[in-house]
Amino acid sequence: MTGLKLPGDWIRGITIKQPWTSCIVAGFKTIENRPQHWPWRGRLLLHAGQQTDRAALRLPLVARTIRGRDLTTGAVIGVARLTGCHQDPDGSPPCTEWAQPGQWHLELADVQALALPIPARGQLGPWKPTEDLIAQVLQQLPGLRP
């Protein structure tokens, strides 16, 4: 049964500290910095982890992006499509103003915010969401499919 996508095999979750998750959901941050290469491609649930990167709140780029936004934690707040993963070549300018040198940059596209955050637990690395969590996301984004 090659090519058959079982329920949940087409989507993964990624846990990101706030305010970075909100910057992605707002549509401004199009990459996520990670220490390792991610070979997986496809849809990602954007999970705002329990922790907040307090130092990031003082960065002008972040402050402008999150102004007036809730910084929900411990919940899925959006969905994106992971289209690629790269590192900037040594000595080259960063691919975006959000890129951190020496990190792998997960390339995110087709970001959609959820109207209502869905409380959930995440974990490091790409994680497989439960069928119940996927069903809750599809209630808000019924057109979302593999």
Rank of each mutant, 00 (worst) to 15 (best):
T65K: 02
T96S: 12
K17G: 12
R12V: 08
G68T: 07
G122I: 11
A80K: 03
E107W: 03
P7T: 14
L106W: 10
W20D: 00
A120N: 01
T15L: 06
E107Y: 01
K5M: 13
V111Y: 00
L116K: 09
L144Q: 09
P126Y: 00
I118T: 13
A26V: 03
Q136M: 14
Q136C: 10
H105P: 05
R121L: 13
A113M: 05
W10Y: 08
T30M: 01
L6G: 05
R58Y: 01
R12E: 12
C95L: 12
E97D: 06
R43G: 00
G3E: 06
V79S: 07
T83G: 01
T15G: 08
R12I: 09
G3W: 04
V79H: 13
Q136V: 07
I24D: 01
P117L: 07
H105K: 08
K5Y: 11
Q103P: 06
P39T: 11
A113N: 09
F28I: 02
P19H: 08
L71Q: 13
T30A: 05
S92A: 15
I134K: 06
N33V: 05
K128A: 15
Q112M: 13
T21L: 14
P39N: 11
R12D: 00
G91P: 15
V76R: 12
P89N: 00
V62T: 09
T73Y: 05
A99K: 10
C95A: 15
A113H: 02
R81V: 07
Q139S: 08
L44I: 15
S22W: 07
I118Y: 02
L138I: 02
R121Q: 11
D53I: 02
T65Y: 07
W20L: 05
L133W: 06
L59M: 08
R58D: 02
P126H: 08
A109I: 01
G84C: 03
G91S: 12
D70S: 15
G74I: 15
I66R: 06
I11D: 14
G102Y: 15
E32Y: 04
A99T: 05
D53K: 01
R121F: 06
M1F: 12
G42D: 04
